[in-house]
Write a protein that binds this DNA or RNA. Structure first.
Lengths: 149, 149
DNA sequence: GGCGTTTCCTTGATATTTGAAGCAATGCAC
DNA sequence: GTGCATTGCTTCAAATATCAAGGAAACGCC
C-alpha cells in the first residue's frame, strides 16, 4: 500500500531541478565567468528599477541574509550594483543595478533563456502549461498570510 | 509576443524545489542534527546493501567527487558508513552503511517522508502522477547513451 | 611484458551557503 | 520621552560545494 508515491515524486522533482541548475550554472560560469546565484540576484534587481532592500533580495532569491550580504558585496566590487542607505530607514540598504550591471545581465539573460528553452524542449507547450499549473498549486502553500480565508 | 513561457516554468520549478529543499534541510538539522546532503548519501547507500563506489555516489547524489570524499569521511567519523577497497579494483573504494548508519537513516527517513507528503498535499494523487510523468519526460534527456536508438 | 591512456579517488585552494550572534536603528507601550 | 522588543543587516565559524592537479591502479595495444 504505502508505495511512497510522494517520495518518488519529490526525488524526481529534486533531481530534475538540480540537474538543470547544475548545467545552467556551469554554462554561466564557462561563458560569462559568473554564477547562477549572481545571475538570479541581478534578475531580481532588473525587475525592480527602484532597487530592493537586502531583506527583499533575501526573500526573493530564497537565500539567507548573510549570503545576500556576501553576494551584494561581490557584485558591488564588480561594479554591477550599488548599495545605498534607505532614506526612510537608516538600518536598511537599497541595492540597485548599475548601467554596467544591466548590460551584463541582459547579455547573460539571452543565453540563459536559450538554455532553459532547450532543457524544457522535451515538453510540448500544453505540457509546459500543465506543469506550470501543477507547480503553482504546490507553490501556493508557501505564500504568506491567508490563515483561514 | 515574447511571453517567456519556458522561463517562467523554470523559475517556478526552481523556486518550488528550492523552497521545499530548504525547509526539509532545516527540519533535518533541527530534528536530527544532520543535513540533507548527508541524508541523501545515506539514502543511496540504503538502497544498495552491497555498497557503492565513490564514483557511483557522486553520480547518484549529483555532486562532485571531491565533495563525496568529504561527506563520506564525515559520515565515517560518525560511524555511519565504512569504506573498504574494492576486491576487484584497488583504485576503487566501496562505501557501505553500518548498522548504526541504517538505524540513523531509518529514523530520519520516516520523518522525511512525512514532510515530503505534507509539502505535496496540495496535489491530489492524479495530479501527483501527472507531475511525475511530466518530469519524467524532462529527466529522460539526461540519461546517458542512446544516441540514435 | 611494457608503455601510454584512462579511470578512480584524494588533495588543496576557493567559492558559496547556512545559522547563530551581535549591533544599530525603529517602533510601541507607557 | 524611556525602555524594551523587534527589525535589518553584518559578521563569523562551520558546512558544503566546485574545480584543477596529482597519484596509483587498470587497461589496451603492440
Amino acid at each position: 500500500m504505502t508505495d511512497h508515491e510522494s517520495l518518488r515524486l519529490w526525488l524526481r522533482l529534486f533531481s530534475c531541478t538540480t540537474e538543470i541548475e547544475r548545467r545552467i550554472g556551469s554554462a554561466i560560469k564557462r561563458e560569462f565567468g559568473s554564477s547562477l546565484p549572481r545571475f538570479d540576484l541581478l534578475a531580481q534587481l532588473e525587475r525592480s528599477p527602484e532597487g530592493l532592500r537586502m531583506g527583499e533580495l533575501s526573500e526573493r532569491t530564497l537565500t539567507t541574509g548573510g549570503n545576500i550580504t556576501w553576494l551584494v558585496r561581490a557584485l558591488e566590487a564588480d561594479g554591477y550594483v550599488t548599495r545605498r542607505i534607505a532614506t526612510d530607514d537608516r538600518r536598511a540598504a537599497v541595492v540597485r543595478l548599475t548601467a554596467a550591471g544591466r548590460r551584463h545581465f541582459t547579455t547573460m539573460a539571452r543565453a540563459h533563456e536559450r538554455w532553459v528553452i532547450a532543457f524544457l524542449r522535451p515538453l510540448v507547450p500544453a505540457d509546459r502549461r500543465a506543469l506550470h499549473a501543477l507547480l503553482g498549486r504546490v507553490k501556493e502553500q508557501f505564500r504568506p498570510s491567508r490563515s483561514t480565508e
